[in-house]
Amino acid sequence: MANLANHTLSAYDVDLNKLTTALSDLGSLVEAMVTDAVRAMRTRDAELARSVVHRDLAANRLQAKIDDDAMRILALRNPMATDLRRTVGAIRVATDLERIGDLAEGIAKRSLGLSDPYARELVGGVVRMGRAVKAQLAKALDAFLREDPRAALQAWMGDGEIDTLYNSILRELLTHMMADPARINACTALLFAAKNLERIGDHASNICEHIYFTSTGAQLIEDPTVRELRARQPDAASL
């Protein structure tokens, strides 16, 4: 274990650490919101769904606080190089996390109206996708907090998996809707949840890109690995 390089100003270091801690708090909050929103959908637990909706307020507040703190660092400390990127990265990641909170809230709200008996048998795909998205988000946050660009790159490449899952759910639900119009109500709600999950995955990818930039100063899509990947699979450009 290496000692952390100390800044000349120790108060400044404390500020940056406070920012990291706040991001960890916000990250874990929206992670739990995503998990609970999907669980509420599966178990049709209205209480849990309402608590997710309620927690979105806390997420918004935390994001505002991170914004304020980051602004203060920018204004008072005039950070340079890595510190500047860290501070700006914090603002961006907080925005993405706040959006993820909104999307989880959307899923929770949708599950409140989902009293359809069909939903129970069709929810499996969404639950599976929820698990994958949650893992993706956890990986992105781990990489961000540990400032590990390799881990970020690895998590970023996992997004294709979620897209595949989304497409397979889409096909499955369409088949059900065509087979039995009575299921359209349940299927639409699930489709909405799947779409939100897919966008949560996109925000997780954004977070990965921010980390990559924060710790290397270069853009992730210009990483030689990504270039090679794209050269090999042109259709992966939509990753």
Binding site: M1, A2, L4, N17, T20, T21, S24, D25, L145
Partner: peptide
């Protein structure tokens, strides 16, 4: 690394 917040 030591010196980072526990939340990391």
């Amino acid at each position: 690394r030591i010196g980072r917040p526990f939340g990391v």
